[in-house]
Design a binder for these strands. Structure first.
Lengths: 113, 113
DNA sequence: CGATGACACCTTGACATCCTACATATGCAT
DNA sequence: ATGCATATGTAGGATGTCAAGGTGTCATCG
């Protein structure tokens, strides 16, 4: 705790979108999704397991991803997720929404005093 | 509700920061803060009153804003909020954090498939 | 005079999301 | 045998937002 800046690991509401994006790049299992998000963001984003797996389950329940067991790189069984057609649509919508909202917010923050 | 995509009016976790920013531009009362955010964002952001007032109260409780009664433009009494020194510090920190996180997210979304 | 709508404050209850912490199990290296 | 990275999952609690409702004032319109 030596003067570390407080970090919230995520922006609320963006996790589903980020997972969809990673899965859109190719079928991936949960553990790897979290690692990849961390790498892709250069350690800015960190997904806790207690956030990750519930998110994957709700995405599957909504039909945005499909899951199946397969062997991971290391030979162990892992649950691979792939994007459904509905999921791809969702990813597009959420990305557009993100662009709109984040641009609006950044614009406000840039307002000169 | 004609097939409208569900849209959350805000990105969770950004409301406090946005309020601090508006208040940083000059003392303002709650109702006007919500209007201003909507205007500044060209109707992209909409703050519900059930989000606004609890937010103002927690900002005050944390000592990030100071509140006092005064007459509004229309002559009616309103509760004007102004930024404290601690609040200004918070605004800076949260803005930097926003920049980091939003840049990371946008970067991931831009990854080519 | 009564109704309406904009202004301005506020609370309650439900809900979704996230985090901390815990729990389980495998494979590999030491 | 012990530990570590991999890999999945749940339980409990905190937080933030929303939908919906409520109070009261003031100006305007019919």
């Amino acid at each position: 705790m030596a003067g570390e800046a407080q970090k919230s690991d995520l922006l609320q509401g963006t996790l589903d979108m980020l997972i969809l994006k990673v899965v859109a790049l190719g079928p991936t299992h949960g553990y790897a999704i979290a690692q990849r998000l961390q790498q892709m963001s250069k350690d800015v984003l960190q997904v806790q397991q207690g956030s990750l797996y519930p998110a994957l389950h709700r995405l599957e329940k909504r039909g945005w991803v499909r899951a199946e067991w397969a062997a991971s790189d290391t030979g162990r069984d892992a649950r691979f997720y792939s994007l459904t057609r509905v999921g791809r649509k969702q990813l597009e919508e959420q990305s557009e929404n993100w662009d709109r909202l984040s641009a609006a917010i950044s614009g406000i923050l840039r307002t000169a005093e």
